[in-house]
C-alpha cells in the first residue's frame, strides 16, 4: 500500500483537511501539494492554522477529516506506519529540541543507529558529513548547552538530515533567534534548497520566504486563503494578504 510515489506524484498532498481542538476549528478544508524539490512556505497570522497544518504532515496531530498523503503514506489513516513515515520526513522545531544528555555527534548518530541499524563507525562518518553541511564540524563533541541558539538549530537540522529524509518540515525554526543567528540558520536552509531538498516551512521571515519559496500558501482562519508563486507577497490579490504583508517586514 505504501509504494514509492512516481516522480509525477506530489511528495506531500493535503486534500480538504479538517482539524478541531475542541470547539475550535483550526483547519477548515485545507488543501495544498508539494512537488519533489519544491520549497513551500506556509505563512499567516498566529492562530491561522499554519503550524497545525505542518504538524499534521508528520502526524503530530491527527486530522478529523480529509486526506493526507506523504511519500506514499496515507497519514490520515489510523493504520499508517508511523516509523516508516518519519524515516521519510524530517522535522525541525522552533525550540531545537536537541537531546541535552548527548553530545552533538551522539544526537546525530542515535537515530541512524537505532532505527536504520547503521554501524557506529559509519554513523560517525555520517555525523561529520552532515555537520559539515551546516558548518559545525568543530562541535562534534560538544553538548547542546555549550552551543548558541543558532548553532543548536543548525545541529538539529544536521540531526534531521542524517536520516536522509525525502522531505523536511521546518516549524518556525528561527522564531527563537536574534537576527544575526537567524541569518546563519537561513543560510543553511538556502543551501538545502539549492541542493534540491523538498521543504515545507512555516515562517515569519517574509523576505526569506520571498527569496527561497517556489510557492507561498497564505493561511487565514484555518483555510488556504491565497496561494501562488513568491510574487504574491509583493502583489497580493486578497485584502487579508495585503494587510498581512503590509504589517510584516518585507526585507529583501
Amino acid at each position: 500500500m505504501q509504494q514509492n510515489p512516481s516522480p509525477s506524484e506530489p511528495i506531500v498532498s493535503l486534500r480538504d483537511v479538517q482539524k478541531s481542538f475542541g470547539a475550535l476549528r483550526v483547519l477548515d478544508g485545507v488543501s495544498f501539494a508539494v512537488e519533489r524539490g519544491e520549497v513551500l512556505a506556509l505563512i499567516g497570522r498566529s492562530g491561522s492554522g499554519k503550524s497545525t497544518a505542518l504538524r499534521c504532515i508528520d502526524r503530530f496531530e491527527k486530522v478529523d477529516g480529509g486526506e493526507i498523503v506523504v511519500c506514499g503514506h496515507r497519514v490520515d489513516r489510523p493504520d499508517v506506519d508511523l516509523r516508516a513515515l518519519r524515516q521519510d520526513v524530517g522535522i525541525v522545531f522552533q525550540s531545537y529540541n536537541l537531546f541535552p544528555h548527548l553530545t552533538i555527534e551522539q544526537n546525530i548518530t542515535l537515530a541512524p543507529c537505532a532505527v536504520k541499524g547503521m554501524a557506529a563507525s559509519q554513523a560517525r562518518d555520517l555525523a561529520r558529513k552532515v555537520l559539515a553541511q551546516v558548518g559545525l564540524e568543530e562541535k562534534l563533541h560538544a553538548y547542546p548547552e555549550q552551543l548558541s541558539g543558532g548553532q543548536q538549530q543548525r545541529a538539529a537540522i544536521a540531526r534531521s538530515l542524517a536520516m536522509q529524509p525525502k522531505v523536511m518540515l521546518f516549524d518556525e525554526v528561527t522564531s527563537a533567534l536574534d537576527p544575526e543567528l537567524t541569518a546563519e540558520v537561513l543560510k543553511v536552509i538556502e543551501q538545502l534548497a539549492a541542493d534540491g531538498m523538498t521543504m515545507v516551512m512555516v515562517t515569519h521571515e517574509m523576505g526569506f520566504a520571498k527569496g527561497i519559496a517556489d510557492r507561498i500558501v497564505f493561511m487565514h482562519r484555518g483555510k488556504v486563503h491565497e496561494t501562488g508563486p513568491a510574487s504574491i507577497l509583493t502583489s497580493p490579490t486578497t485584502p487579508e494578504l495585503m494587510q498581512f504583508v503590509g504589517t510584516g517586514n518585507l526585507k529583501s
Binding site: 508528520d58 503530530f60 508511523l82 516509523r83 516508516a84 518519519r86 524515516q87 520526513v89 524530517g90 522535522i91 522545531f93 529540541n97 536537541l98 537531546f99 542515535l110 537515530a111 537505532a114 532505527v115 538539529a156 540531526r159 534531521s160 536520516m163
Partner: peptide, 9 residues
C-alpha cells in the same frame, strides 16, 4: 516529539 520525529520506537 523530537525523538518521535526521528522515527525512534
Amino acid at each position: 516529539e523530537a525523538a518521535e520525529g526521528l522515527a525512534l520506537s
